[in-house]
Simulated scan of single mutants.
Amino acid sequence: MIGLWMSERERIWKKKRVLILCSAYLLILAIYIAKLIYSGVGLYDYGEGKAALHNLNLSWFVLQDMSFIIQAIILPIFAVSTLCDEIHSGCYRLYMLRPFRRYQHWSIKLIALLEVVLVFIIGTYVISMISGWIFLPHSQSAILYHTTEPIGFWEANLYTIKLYLMHVLTCLLMIMMSSVICFFVPVSVVAFMIIFCFPFLMSVINSEFIIMNNPFSIVLDVLSPTGHSIFWVYILGSLMVTSFISFVRWKTKSI
């Protein structure tokens, strides 16, 4: 399994388009951080307030917009390249001749996609934290979303970690949804457009499904003192449904 995982990693990261995509993301991230630092103020989505920026909360507002780029653009591009292009082109047939069960191939491909997401999220976290410490005032406390009482230095850092981990969870849902679409749609461009548009359609049907491409405001509610318990019903339920469909489709698909 380790050899299978290493092989999948090499196939993802050694493509030239990955270097271009990573460079473009870093440029966008740098521009956005510079914009926030210059303004000195972070604005919450939907006009729900603002906060003076400092070293503890810069990473919150960086994630607010970068989360959409990761889930709606970066993740679908990698998903289509890793799943749709390889499976429907026929080149994956040779890969399937290796002595591993189908579910192992399926799980390794999804783990490799999750690794890609983790690289972008962890990179965003580290760069935003370093930028906050270098370019913004240092604070020993921070005020959370929908609260008035400040929390201490370590509590604020723990909150930031929770915020980014919640984003990883919502990205996992997008990975599973993308796998379902890629297994059914043979054309890469069409698959990408469906992956991009489907969350918007679902959020029109029910606003809770905004967690698929722009989860920041809902995650803030989940981590606030009042909580947002229905979030767990939607995300865990959606994960189970998409995982089941993806696994069954992978087991039964002709490669």
Rank of each mutant, 00 (worst) to 15 (best):
M1C: 09
G3R: 00
E8Q: 09
R9F: 10
R11V: 04
I12E: 04
L29V: 02
I31D: 03
Y32W: 13
A34W: 00
L36M: 11
Y38E: 13
G40N: 08
V41H: 00
Y46V: 15
A51F: 07
A51Q: 11
L53H: 09
N55C: 09
N55D: 13
L56P: 07
L56M: 08
L58Q: 07
V62G: 08
Q64Y: 07
D65G: 08
I70L: 11
A72L: 14
L75E: 04
I77K: 05
I77N: 00
A79N: 01
V80Q: 06
L83I: 11
D85V: 12
I87C: 04
I87V: 06
H88M: 05
S89L: 02
G90K: 00
R93W: 07
L94K: 00
P99I: 01
S107L: 13
K109A: 13
L113A: 00
L114T: 13
E115M: 09
E115K: 07
V117F: 11
L118Y: 05
I122A: 07
G123T: 06
G123S: 05
T124K: 00
I127T: 12
S128G: 05
M129H: 06
G132Y: 06
G132C: 02
W133Y: 15
W133M: 15
L136Q: 11
H138T: 10
Q140L: 06
S141L: 11
S141P: 03
S141D: 05
I143D: 12
T147E: 12
T148I: 07
E155Y: 06
A156F: 02
I161Q: 02
Y164N: 03
Y164I: 04
L165S: 08
H167D: 05
C171A: 14
L172N: 14
L173N: 10
M176G: 01
M176L: 12
S179R: 04
V185P: 08
V187P: 05
F192K: 01
I194F: 03
I194R: 02
C197F: 13
F198D: 15
F198E: 14
P199C: 11
P199D: 13
F200T: 15
V204I: 15
V204R: 08
S207Y: 02
N213P: 02
F216S: 08
S217R: 03
L220A: 09
D221P: 09
D221F: 03
V222A: 11
P225K: 06
T226K: 08
T226G: 04
G227I: 04
S229K: 07
W232V: 11
Y234A: 11
I235Y: 04
S238D: 01
L239R: 09
L239A: 07
L239I: 13
M240P: 08
V241F: 01
S243N: 15
F244A: 15
I245N: 06
S246A: 15
F247P: 10
V248E: 12
R249A: 14
W250D: 01
